[in-house]
Amino acid sequence: MAKPNKKAPESCIDIYCNKCKAPLFKYRKGGKGLLLKCFKQRITKDFTLLPCTYPNCNMIFARETLIRGTPAFKMIGGKVFSK
């Protein structure tokens, strides 16, 4: 399988907790689809203290995995939203 593009996309989105509305990441997302995974190399600003854990309510919102040989966070459905 192909690796993600080397050049990061131009558009940047903010990812928030669905429960307490706390900011989690600023992420360079490519395409118009749903947010299913976040490649670690595309995260521009990280507001979390522990990986994959909300800073305020300490619940897990993602799992650390390798997708196409690249480290990424696989999002759990309904835990986050983006603007």
Results as ranks from 00 to 15, higher is better:
M1D: 06
M1G: 08
K3N: 00
K3L: 02
P4L: 07
P4M: 04
N5G: 05
K7T: 14
A8M: 11
A8H: 12
A8I: 07
A8D: 03
A8N: 10
P9Q: 03
E10F: 03
S11E: 09
C12K: 09
I13Y: 04
C17P: 00
C17L: 00
C17T: 00
C17V: 01
C20M: 01
K21H: 07
A22F: 09
P23C: 00
L24I: 06
F25K: 11
Y27H: 01
R28L: 07
K29M: 12
K29N: 08
K29R: 15
G30D: 00
G30F: 01
G31V: 05
G31D: 02
G31C: 02
K32P: 02
G33L: 00
L34E: 06
L35M: 10
L35P: 06
L36Q: 01
C38G: 01
F39C: 08
K40N: 05
K40E: 06
Q41C: 03
R42M: 01
R42D: 08
I43P: 02
I43S: 02
T44Q: 10
K45A: 11
D46L: 03
D46C: 13
F47E: 06
L49G: 04
L50S: 02
L50C: 07
L50N: 05
P51E: 04
P51A: 02
C52S: 07
T53C: 03
Y54G: 15
P55N: 11
P55V: 13
P55C: 13
C57I: 06
C57P: 09
N58L: 11
N58A: 09
N58C: 13
N58M: 11
M59H: 14
M59F: 12
M59I: 13
I60R: 15
I60E: 15
I60L: 15
I60A: 11
I60S: 15
F61G: 03
F61S: 10
F61Y: 15
A62D: 03
A62N: 05
R63P: 01
E64T: 14
E64C: 12
E64K: 09
T65M: 11
T65Q: 05
T65G: 03
I67E: 15
I67Y: 08
R68G: 08
R68V: 04
R68P: 00
G69L: 04
G69H: 05
T70L: 10
A72W: 04
A72T: 08
A72I: 05
F73L: 15
K74C: 10
K74G: 04
K74T: 12
M75H: 11
M75G: 10
I76E: 12
I76Q: 13
I76T: 12
G77L: 15
G78F: 15
G78C: 14
G78N: 07
K79C: 11
K79P: 05
K79G: 04
K79W: 14
V80I: 14
V80C: 06
F81C: 10
F81V: 10
S82Y: 12
S82W: 13
